[in-house]
């Protein structure tokens, strides 16, 4: 475990805290894509099936449980308590394409053809594009609350920090070789490119995030 990886994990946890804060503080899930949240739950469930077969560390296991639990909870809140505030009309991205993309690549790129490996590969490719419905929603509405923009930023930062961790591990761990993880992770980070730019610009002006329409 190096510092980049640890900061990446922390950034991921912080993003979820920010999302829950946003929902509680505004008592609404306006501006949050239910589709992206559902995809994340699918990502965590398919990736962390190995909870039952492999033990890496207590830290890893607890984080896996935390990610599954919190993403289930967010989805639960959006579907029950705050359902009235969900902005369905702006959450129109067609996720069939994203799931199809992940299925095709999961069948083409696994390390070995076992159920767990294929599902794990599926989760990596799906995670790489799961933010698209959220970014699309932001694009169509043009702006979002500060907490929502911080949430998306922390979520993007997480994979960017992982990418630095991969470079570090590649340099210092002779056997470390995870090409699928790297390519999917870099794709994931690249999708945030525009968002990062407008986020940083809006923070420099001390204003809330607005996208050009």
């Amino acid at each position: 475990m190096n510092l980049f990886r640890l900061c990446g994990d922390l950034s991921h946890v912080i993003s979820i805290v920010l999302l829950l804060l946003k929902i509680r503080a505004t008592r609404s899930c306006v501006g949050i894509s239910l589709k992206t949240q559902a995809l994340y739950l699918l990502v965590f469930v398919t990736r962390y099936l190995d909870l039952f077969v492999t033990f890496i560390s207590l830290y890893n296991s607890l984080m896996k449980v935390l990610f599954i639990a919190t993403s289930s909870y967010v989805l639960y809140l959006m579907l029950t308590k705050y359902r009235q505030t969900y902005d369905k009309d702006h959450d129109t991205f067609r996720i069939q394409f994203l799931v199809g993309f992940a299925i095709v690549l999961a069948l083409l790129t696994p390390h070995r053809y076992t159920m767990l490996e294929v599902l794990w590969t599926f989760s990596l490719w799906l995670e790489s594009v799961a933010i698209l419905p959220q970014l699309f929603m932001l694009q169509t509405t043009g702006e979002c609350e500060n907490l929502t923009s911080h949430y998306i930023f922390a979520l993007g930062l997480y994979r960017a920090l992982y990418a630095v961790n991969w470079v570090y591990r590649y340099l210092f761990e002779p056997d470390y070789w995870q090409p699928v993880t790297w390519v999917a992770g870099i794709l994931q980070t690249a999708l945030y490119g525009d968002f990062f730019y407008y986020y940083v610009m809006s923070k420099r002006r001390g204003k809330k995030l607005k996208l050009p329409t």
Partner: peptide, 10 residues
């Protein structure tokens, strides 16, 4: 073999 099957990241 390589460490590829070792998934110690999240």
């Amino acid at each position: 073999s390589s460490k590829e099957s070792e998934k110690d990241e999240l």
